[in-house]
């Protein structure tokens, strides 16, 4: 039995679910607590999506500005995570669109076959995974991160992105296939996975 992905889940037990509703009604302290709680998680997603610390910080900052702006439109009976990550994912897409460096990886098409570069050799496992992740089409990278790293359900991701459940499952599968192929191919050296 493979280890469960539950071990990766971010604990939300200490997040007060009343905070979004209070922030919506103008409670600034509630908003500050939301930023403090979600900032690291948002930064993790943005960094994994954008591959750049600086771009990630910009995306996260823009996201919270927009969250604050958009709280009047937040439905209190809705879950906060998908709503927040929808805004964050949109900010990441916008940054990718505006960033010439990432232009080549937001196009559709087959995943490039030459992912292993010399600079990967000797890099740690996390960095190696990021390098491979960065070669994936943006929609696959986004779906993989939301599902397997942020632990959102397919239903939540579907609501966020507007993509159908089948399409999302296919994106995640393709991302996993590509990761599996590259990382396995590039990691005959056991220290990468062992």
């Amino acid at each position: 039995m493979f280890p469960t992905l539950a071990v990766l889940r971010t604990s939300v037990t200490d997040f007060d679910p009343t905070l979004p509703g209070r922030a919506k009604h103008g409670d600034e302290q509630a908003f500050i607590k939301i930023v403090e709680f979600y900032y690291p998680r948002c930064l993790r997603f943005a960094r994994n999506m954008l591959g750049s610390e600086q771009d990630a910080e910009e995306a996260v900052q823009d996201t919270f500005v927009r969250v604050h702006d958009s709280f009047p439109r937040f439905r209190e009976d809705a879950r906060f995570d998908p709503w927040l990550f929808r805004i964050l994912a949109n900010r990441c897409r916008t940054l990718m669109a505006r960033n010439r460096r990432h232009r080549s990886v937001i196009e559709y098409g087959d995943v490039p076959q030459t992912a292993t570069a010399e600079h990967e050799i000797g890099a740690d496992w996390a960095e190696e995974v990021r390098v491979v992740l960065d070669t994936l089409p943006a929609e696959q990278r986004e779906a993989f991160l939301l599902r397997h790293v942020e632990d959102l359900s397919y239903e939540d991701i579907s609501a966020m992105t507007g993509a159908g459940l089948s399409a999302l499952r296919m994106r995640v599968k393709r991302a996993c296939d590509a990761l599996r192929a590259r990382l396995t191919d590039g990691s005959k050296d056991d220290r990468r996975i062992g």
Partner: peptide, 12 residues
């Protein structure tokens, strides 16, 4: 995949 996801899950 679990190992890959775990590698990406560290909070920066």
């Amino acid at each position: 995949i679990v190992r890959a996801a775990r590698a990406l899950s560290g909070m920066p």
